[in-house]
């Protein structure tokens, strides 16, 4: 079967957007995982950067094949999460958010100052190794896994933590273990997203994993809603498509983009899809 040229052109034109939708969906899930246990941890962009940089170095310096690089790309972010986890997870609310943002900024300084990471010039000439099958395959697998976890007993404990941490602890939920688990899962998902993104866009730079992307990733999950994994993915889709849909408005498009976020939060407080996971009564 051959694809007609117009369809081929169409797919190619929006190829990057299609990649970005999938990758940002994974990032939204990475945010969802921590929000689901009530943790406002904003390290997703930093984890993504670790996944991206480490995977590109594996591809370019070690010459590893992509089937090995992709799973290994979770390694650096997960190790980082384990190291910072203990002291950081004692914090909550704003303090946790700012601490994780601060860690991201420290990593940015490392990328800028260590020659291996290319400094301000970043790493370029990355071969295109990832494709939509991998991106969407992983996205679907992640949604499914999170859905199943959410519907299980673990999910019930997570929800209890989100509603009231102290009460959950009294009920016998091991808070630290759940928080750590969520952080590690979040790091792994973001690392995969970073690896996939790097291997479809030929260039990565130190400015892509700082404060702004951290906040953007948070807005994916919040806009979509944090009741179900699929809702946060929908949020990512909306916010990724918006700037492209509004392209005709040129310099006013970001204004409208912001207004849409404001209106959505004010009038849809539970997100665009304010549902909860259904679970059989215990």
């Amino acid at each position: 079967m051959t694809i007609p040229p117009w369809l081929d052109d169409f797919l190619w034109t929006y190829g990057n957007l299609v990649h970005a939708l999938g990758v940002n969906g994974l990032l939204a899930l990475s945010m969802y995982v921590v929000l689901a246990v009530g943790q406002l941890s904003l390290g997703q962009a930093a984890f993504m950067g670790l996944g991206a940089y480490s995977s590109v170095l594996m591809t370019q310096q070690l010459g590893l094949p992509f089937w090995a690089v992709l799973p290994l790309s979770v390694l650096a972010p997960v190790v980082f999460a384990l190291v910072i986890g203990l002291p950081t997870l004692r914090l909550s609310g704003v303090y946790l958010a700012i601490a994780t943002i601060g860690l991201g900024e420290v990593l940015r300084a490392v990328y800028l100052n260590v020659d291996l990471f290319g400094g301000a010039l970043g790493l370029s000439g990355i071969p295109e190794r990832a494709d939509n099958t991998m991106i969407y395959g992983l996205l679907l697998a992640a949604i499914l896994a999170l859905w199943l976890v959410g519907r299980s007993g673990i999910g019930r404990a997570m929800e209890a933590m989100r509603e009231d941490e102290t009460a959950a602890a009294v009920m016998g939920v091991n808070l630290l273990r759940y928080k750590m688990g969520a952080l590690v899962a979040s790091a792994a998902l973001a690392g995969l997203a970073g690896c996939l993104n790097a291997h479809v866009s030929s260039f990565i730079g130190p400015g892509e994993y700082g404060f702004e992307p951290a906040v953007t990733i948070l807005s994916y999950a919040l806009l979509g809603g944090i009741g179900t994994p699929i809702a946060s993915v929908v949020g990512a889709f909306i916010l990724t498509l918006l700037p492209e849909l509004l392209r005709e408005l040129s310099d006013l498009r970001l204004v409208l983009n912001g207004v849409i976020i404001v209106v959505a939060v004010l009038f849809l407080p539970g997100g665009v899809l304010p549902f909860r996971l259904r679970r059989r009564a215990a």
């Binding site: 052109d9 169409f10 190619w12 034109t13 190829g15 990057n16 492209e244 392209r247």
Partner: peptide
């Protein structure tokens, strides 16, 4: 990403 999207839109 927006730069790449713009390039693909212009070309495609």
């Amino acid at each position: 990403d927006q730069a790449i999207n713009a390039a693909r839109k212009l070309i495609g």
